[in-house]
Design a protein around this nucleic acid. Structure first.
Lengths: 248, 248
DNA sequence: ACAAAAGTGTTTGAGTTACACCCATGT
DNA sequence: ACATGGGTGTAACTCAAACACTTTTGT
């Protein structure tokens, strides 16, 4: 952005051009497992491999705009406007695409329990796969996906992001399951409930309504996502390995 | 990255090329204030305005590589390898540079009390300015800088990042000052000390040595940065609006 | 009746805050 | 002597983990 680069006059074609793309890690919760949206590549390189959905930036759009457009095309969802879409980071290592220099802005998207995936506008096959079963992906998409999963898991701790996985109305048990599935841990239902309700604006009660929770158990109250976005104090993930702490 | 874009054959010059640059928000602590490294623009647009240092990606380097190269050029520091450099996000709105389509990967860098800034390899003037006194910057750099400051402040809470502002050996008072300056709050020295020492790997004692703290007061023990990177439990910033707390 | 999940209550303990107090140095 | 910042001790408080217990459904 400064003029300290080698080109002072911005000769548009003097240098090897960079292609700029977006890649999307689209997560959903289905059948109690974290799923990820993937497309199958039709040609080389990596023909037949799964890859993250994505595509080129068009001249008039920002990376966020391109990501939301791709999200709509690949998921087939009608109202893509309300979905959570978050820029992750940009991957720019030379050689990450063998054909040319591609700089890719990666995004993470969170969608409620998903409609059928379909191959977007073109012939590529698209599918929701349980996270962890996807095998090696094309390009550096394994790394992007891993980075995305870490980011999403971390953001659950200090944001109200978890509601993005839920339908418009949900029970606290469903909300708790979001944390349990993404973190791979169990949470105490009683303490979770207190914690969520003690955070103003995290969720709000839907008056009157309640939902039977799959047959078993007492019917649960329904909640909507509130207008809060951050979680103070945070909802900390249980310590994975209990830290051996020296006492004085 | 997928082939869902409009161009299947990767014709390198068929599209308006994107320029890819890096922009750096370089922070340091000097004289008890947060300072930011800026360069003065020599020509239009925004001639005479301050801007973040940065420049074009060269064909063989990643954004991280370009950022570290620019950091070395602009700060004049010898060992730029150990400095903390962190990708912030990518700014890609069309029109953010009036001349052409520029996609910029922004980084935040943290350096210990700084040597003289000098204009890098070219004629641009460079200087350390106290954060907040810089006036409107060129392009969208005000926003990038604000985003960077928020990110750095937040990361102090749950990472060991604060040592990146310190020289190789430092006192706990100096480390505490990092938090106080970046957050703009005062911290209790006693509790801060306990908190830092209770986190394994945050700092380690330099045996024997101690430093006179600018003349006044008891000589303080010296510490080095440890090998820990994250802070569990976090060192939370005091509540911004003081919660009405019943006194004992 | 039993299992299962929602929801409430209570105990306990870890961690933080606030502040009192001593220590070592320069002026 | 006194101011200044380093460093230790401690009581009060807050919050969250753990778990017992009641409620309401389906089988």
């Amino acid at each position: 952005m400064s003029d300290n680069g080698p080109v002072a006059g911005y000769d548009k074609h003097a240098y090897e051009p960079f292609a700029v793309t977006v890649d999307l890690a689209v997560f959903t919760l289905r059948a109690g497992r974290l799923h990820i949206l993937l497309v199958e590549r039709g040609h080389e390189p990596y023909a037949g491999r799964w890859a993250l959905p994505g595509g080129f930036l068009e001249p008039h759009e920002s990376a966020e705009g391109a990501a939301r457009r791709e999200l709509a095309e690949e998921t087939g969802l009608a109202d893509v406007a309300g979905l959570h879409l978050e820029q992750l980071r940009t991957y720019s290592e030379p050689g990450r695409d063998p054909r040319m220099r591609v700089v890719s802005v990666a995004f993470a998207a969170l969608v409620p329990d998903a409609p059928q995936a379909h191959g977007g506008g073109d012939a590529a096959r698209a599918a929701w796969l349980p996270y962890g079963t996807q095998g090696p992906l094309a390009f550096d998409h394994d790394r992007i996906l891993a980075d995305a999963q870490i980011r999403v898991g971390g953001k659950l701790e200090y944001t109200c992001l978890a509601t993005a996985f839920c339908p418009p109305e949900f029970t606290l048990g469903e909300l708790r399951q979001v944390y349990e599935v993404v973190w791979g841990t169990d949470l105490d239902p009683a303490n979770f409930r207190r914690k969520v309700l003690a955070t103003p604006g995290f969720v709000e009660r839907v008056p009157g309504a309640s939902r039977l929770t799959g047959g078993r158990g007492k019917p649960a109250a329904l909640f909507r996502a509130g207008d809060a976005t951050s979680l103070h104090p945070p909802l900390l993930r249980p310590a994975h390995e209990p830290t051996e702490r020296p006492r004085r």
